[in-house]
Amino acid sequence: MKWTEICIQTTNEAVEAISFILHENGASGLVIEDPQDLHDVYDSPYGEVYELDPKDYPEEGVRIKSYLPVNSYLKDSVDEIKQAINNLQNFGLEIGANEVTLTEVNEEDWATAWKKYYKPLQVSERITIKPTWETYEPSRDDEVIIELDPGMAFGTGTHPTTMLSIQALEKYCQGNEVILDVGCGSGVLSIAAVKLGAQKVYAYDLDDVAVKSSKMNIEQNKLSDKIVVEQNNLLQNIDIKADIVVSNILAEIIVKFVDDAWKNLKGEGIFITSGIILNKKHLVLDEMKKHGFDIVEVNELDEWISIIARKPK
């Protein structure tokens, strides 16, 4: 299958909005090349990034790359993306150079070129994510290893939002839980949940690529009997009494299914959300409080937020 890489040079300020625009227009995968990553010093002991090359980063601004299938709708999709990005200026967002370039790539090339940068990664106290093609020996007896090949789906474990989600699961999974994973991407959160003791996970994603990727990774970790993956739009038409709902997607999407999360959670059930940029924190907090959730924790990592809420008994 052939794909077109769309590359947008913009500003840090516009990254979240443009990422949302790409998602809404059917783009798969997302790469953010921010030169600040070359200089960041992390307070957290988790998620160290390996082998960054300055030549891969712009001298000014930020590059956002995503992937669109080469089909009869490609030109219309690109035009809509360009128009939506231009319209951000009407909302006071600075979009910088706003240079948009297109490059045709084969799926096989895209899926393998980045693998040299992806190394085993400790993402929480107990969990290490190991790419399927890397060798790694656990450093202690209680270490939990997740084998992962995300392919073109979001969720390598390296992103702060994924780490925040896994750290929350590690804290709130006590054993034998039923869990709903909304927007499962590569399946990494579902796998982590079961390896931390969950009894059953129901994982949903609207993206067919994500569904296939999740199933592959779940099989790789020999957990197909405990994780059910289905294509679904958030929690629409889902009726499962869960102990935990976890979702690592954008704030604008989280607020769309807070009511469905409430309906599917048992009393005292936990709602773990991430994928929330700092300035959208109150958008999600206000929606949760409006539906009756008690806010348990708000955690931050590299300007990203996770919110953990509880449904009262």
Rank of each mutant, 00 (worst) to 15 (best):
T112K: 10
Q174C: 13
K281A: 04
D53M: 12
V258N: 06
D181A: 06
V211T: 08
K75W: 03
I81P: 07
F293T: 02
I240S: 02
K226L: 14
P58G: 09
E13W: 05
G185V: 07
D302I: 13
G151D: 09
Q89W: 06
T132L: 14
P312K: 06
E219G: 10
K115D: 01
I305T: 07
K75D: 14
G155P: 00
D34V: 00
D239T: 11
L148T: 00
I85S: 15
L206R: 04
N221K: 10
L283H: 05
Q83L: 08
E125S: 11
P58Q: 05
L169A: 04
I253R: 11
I308H: 03
G197C: 11
I270N: 03
Q199L: 11
V105K: 07
Q220P: 06
I276G: 08
Q36K: 12
L278C: 10
Q36A: 13
K2I: 03
H291G: 05
P312E: 04
V298W: 02
S44R: 13
L223N: 01
K2E: 07
S44K: 06
D109E: 15
G47D: 02
I32W: 05
H282G: 05
G185D: 02
Y57I: 10
K241A: 08
C7I: 11
D142L: 14
N71S: 06
K256H: 07
V188L: 04
K241T: 10
E99A: 12
N248R: 11
G175H: 11
V78G: 00
S124Q: 07
I218A: 05
K75P: 04
V194A: 10
G185M: 14
G92W: 00
Q231D: 03
W110G: 01
H23S: 06
F154D: 02
S28W: 12
V245D: 11
G183Y: 14
P69R: 08
G61K: 01
S77H: 14
I227F: 06
E24N: 15
E5Y: 03
G275D: 05
L148I: 03
E303N: 14
D79P: 08
P131W: 12
D149L: 00
M288N: 05
F293Q: 00
M152K: 09
C184T: 11
D260K: 15
K116D: 12
N279K: 09
G175Y: 09
P131Q: 09
E177H: 06
A168M: 07
N248C: 04
V255I: 13
I307P: 00
A84Y: 05
Q36D: 15
S139Y: 13
D109N: 05
V246P: 05
K119P: 04
K280F: 14
Q231M: 08
V123A: 15
K65A: 10
L235C: 02
D149Y: 00
K130Y: 03
I270C: 01
D34I: 01
E143G: 07
E60N: 07
D205S: 10
T161C: 12
K289W: 00
A198E: 02
W110H: 11
D207F: 08
A84G: 04
Q199S: 06
I129V: 10
F20R: 09
D79C: 07
A210I: 00
T135R: 10
F257Q: 09
L196I: 13
I254H: 09
E99K: 15
K115T: 02
D260F: 15
V298A: 02
G183I: 06
V201T: 04
K215S: 04
N86Y: 11
A111S: 08
K215V: 03
T103C: 07
E13H: 09
S66I: 06
Y67F: 12
K281L: 07
P35R: 06
